[in-house]
């Protein structure tokens, strides 16, 4: 079962940017792509647990602020060392101007 959680307003995230969202003791990162699609991943880098929301979104990559490791935020795939472990992703959708993320209940 997936619980859809209201994470933020669609306009709270700039295009080609990311924000942090904390819920239920976890931290998530919500992305808005240059094409205005929304995505969600775990909020902490798999290398050293740094908040990705402080990083830089370029096209479909999120670059970690600590050592510049990169992930494709659409798939969570680790794209550039020092990250080797993929990032967990969650479904995201926009309804009524709000971004909802799907978390397993």
């Amino acid at each position: 079962m997936t619980d859809w959680i209201d994470a933020c307003g669609a306009e709270d995230v700039d295009a080609e940017d990311v924000i942090r969202f904390d819920h239920g003791g976890r931290t998530y990162a919500i992305y808005r792509s240059p094409e205005d699609d929304y995505f969600c991943t775990d909020g902490l880098c798999t290398h050293e647990q740094v908040h990705l929301a402080d990083g830089l979104v370029m096209d479909h990559l999120i670059e970690c602020p600590k050592h510049n490791g990169q992930f494709d935020y659409r798939t969570g795939e680790a794209m550039r060392a020092p990250v080797c472990v993929n990032l967990r992703t969650y479904p995201a959708k926009v309804e009524g101007g709000r971004v909802l993320i799907g978390v397993a209940s």
């Binding site: 290398h47 050293e48 600590k66 050592h67 060392a81 020092p82």
Partner: peptide, 13 residues
């Protein structure tokens, strides 16, 4: 280039 990518990451951490 592989070794030093990791060593430099440690220098930043």
């Amino acid at each position: 280039p592989v070794t030093w990518r990791w060593s430099h990451a440690r220098h930043h951490t």
